[in-house]
């Protein structure tokens, strides 16, 4: 597959971005994250974005979908968009229809299973990827809401299906992390142009130049690592690549906080939502048990 998105698709992602901006006006707050996102899901469905990967069409360019997931990651709408994209792509097209929010469940080392967003009302956990069978919605328990944009809940059992679907989903979650990091990078740059100290904008200080360069380097490499994940030969490789992308994305987010100084460390600025989202992706990858996956 090509490693760069098509020009036409890039144009489409701009439209997608505009939609997401209208759906998540910000600033983010715990109250906002707690609201039902029915309107947002309907807008995604009506815009045709949930079928962007082509229902049942596994040959669609995954690179394009990564671009979409990256744009999604720049906003923090608590919905399983990437998981749904992936599952729609892998499920049999004849069974696709409702386009409910879908998520996947993976086995953990402790023998249990976890699924992002499974605690959210209306989200269905897919149990058989190829057949499109789903468990009842909203059955996840004990959710970890460290990142409210990506809560992770405990569910009864892991999804089953060919390994490739999980590789695809790892790549898409990695791309989400890249998107969150890109937002942090852009916000740090914008802040460095506005904030003054010693009668200079801080963006003119060499120390900030060097931090910004490091952020940019890590962001670029994170994007490339997400492409590696999308092209991985097996699950183990996809996890290595996805983890690399998420680690690099975290590096960008934490540097962004440093550029912002004291305000970056506060709850009220809101940069931490992005950092937390990236850390949730990292944590999700870390909990996937390859050993248990192989047994399935």
């Amino acid at each position: 597959m090509s490693l760069i998105p098509s020009i036409e698709f890039l144009d489409a992602t701009k439209e997608f971005n505009r939609l997401l901006e209208s759906l998540s006006p910000g600033p983010y707050s715990e109250e906002w994250f707690a609201q039902p996102q029915t309107e947002a899901w309907n807008a995604l469905r009506e815009g045709g974005w949930l079928l962007a990967g082509g229902a049942g069409s596994r040959d669609e360019e995954l690179t394009n979908l990564l671009e979409l997931a990256e744009v999604w990651g720049q906003h923090l709408i608590p919905l399983p968009f990437s998981a749904t994209l992936c599952l729609m792509r892998w499920a049999n097209s004849s069974d696709q229809p409702s386009v409910s929010p879908l998520t996947l469940a993976v086995p953990t080392a402790g023998g249990s299973a976890i699924a992002p967003f499974a605690n959210i009302r209306g989200v269905e956990v897919v149990c058989d990827v190829e057949l499109g069978l789903t468990l009842s919605a909203g059955k996840g328990t004990s959710p970890d809401i460290f990142a409210p944009s990506m809560p992770i809940a405990v569910v009864d059992r892991a999804s089953i299906g060919p390994q490739e679907w999980l590789c695809t989903s790892i790549a898409l979650f990695a791309a989400e992390a890249v998107g969150a990091a890109r937002q942090c990078h852009n916000r740090a740059l914008a802040y460095s142009f506005e904030r003054s100290a010693y009668q200079q904008v801080i963006g003119s200080f060499q120390a900030i130049h060097h931090m910004a360069a490091n952020m940019y380097r890590d962001l670029e490499l994170a994007k490339s690592a997400s492409l590696w994940a999308a092209n991985a030969g097996d699950l183990e490789e996809a996890l290595r690549a996805g983890t690399m992308a998420a680690e690099l994305a975290r590096s960008v987010a934490q540097k962004s906080i440093q550029v912002h100084g004291g305000i970056g460390f506060t709850w009220e600025l809101g940069l931490h939502w992005y950092l937390r989202h990236v850390m949730a992706v990292e944590s999700f990858f870390r909990h996937i048990s390859l050993e248990h996956m192989r047994e399935m």
């Binding site: 998105p5 852009n186 003119s204």
Partner: peptide
């Protein structure tokens, strides 16, 4: 690449395309 100002340069905030990867 990032078009950051040099030390002492008077700057205006650039218009960042904050939502796209620029690819």
């Amino acid at each position: 690449v990032l078009k950051m100002p040099r030390f002492g340069q008077v700057v205006r905030s650039p218009t960042l395309d904050s939502k796209s990867s620029g690819e």
